[in-house]
């Protein structure tokens, strides 16, 4: 596989992960979507996770509403409190729109990108993944690496365990693990550093 093809593949994955983190809506969260999701898990050998999620989805009366409630609780406003707001600044500055969000936006601009009018805040997980996808498409691998190291991993490492521990639905537990997997650095043998 050529480096260009590889880049296209990883760009698609970033986009797909970004899609997974959108507010659930039956418009896109349909059978096709879940099939792609399961097949991705299958490729990675996480069949058990795919089975667990599929079971949960298939058994639910309204699987999309379940995920909407879960999404709201995890990422917007929840009880006992919002589990893991998907904004970098929340973890780095303890506030929305902190210095960290400013730095993130500056990085986008440095690379020639800007936020669209109706976009969320620049340090929203969705936009960071979209940005990574765009960088990858442009084959800016040093840029991708720099963004991951300086602006993505520092907060994602705090965000990820909050979702893992706080999730009631396996879908988001697995999505954040997928994102973790695809954004972690690895050594030359392809091993990722193990926290434990």
């Amino acid at each position: 596989m050529s480096p260009e093809e590889q880049s296209e593949d990883i760009a698609r994955v970033y986009r797909f992960l970004s899609q997974c983190m959108q507010y659930p809506d039956a418009e896109w969260m349909d059978e096709d979507f879940f099939n792609v999701f399961y097949s991705l898990l299958g490729t990675l050998g996480a069949v058990n996770d795919a089975v667990e999620i599929k079971k949960k989805i298939d058994q639910a009366e309204d699987p999309v509403e379940d995920l909407q409630v879960e999404y709201t609780r995890l990422f917007i406003n929840g009880v006992p409190h919002v589990v893991a707001p998907p904004y970098g600044s929340v973890y780095m500055d303890k506030s929305l729109q902190g210095t960290f969000a400013g730095n993130t936006l500056a990085f986008y601009r440095d690379k020639g990108f800007a936020m669209e009018e109706n976009a969320d805040l620049p340090d929203h997980l969705i936009h960071e993944l979209e940005f990574l996808s765009l960088l990858t498409l442009e084959n800016d691998l040093p840029g991708e690496e720099e963004f991951l190291t300086k602006l993505f991993r520092p907060w994602y490492e705090k965000f990820h365990p909050r979702v893992t521990e706080g999730a009631h639905h396996p879908f988001y537990r697995v999505v954040v693990q997928l994102i973790d997997f695809f954004t972690k650095e690895e050594d030359k043998d392809g091993f990722q550093p193990n926290k434990a």
Binding site: N103, R109, K111, F113, A114
Partner: peptide, 11 residues
């Protein structure tokens, strides 16, 4: 949601 625009320096 992201499109091309001008560059900006680091804080």
């Amino acid at each position: 949601v992201v499109s091309a625009n001008t560059g900006v320096t680091k804080a």
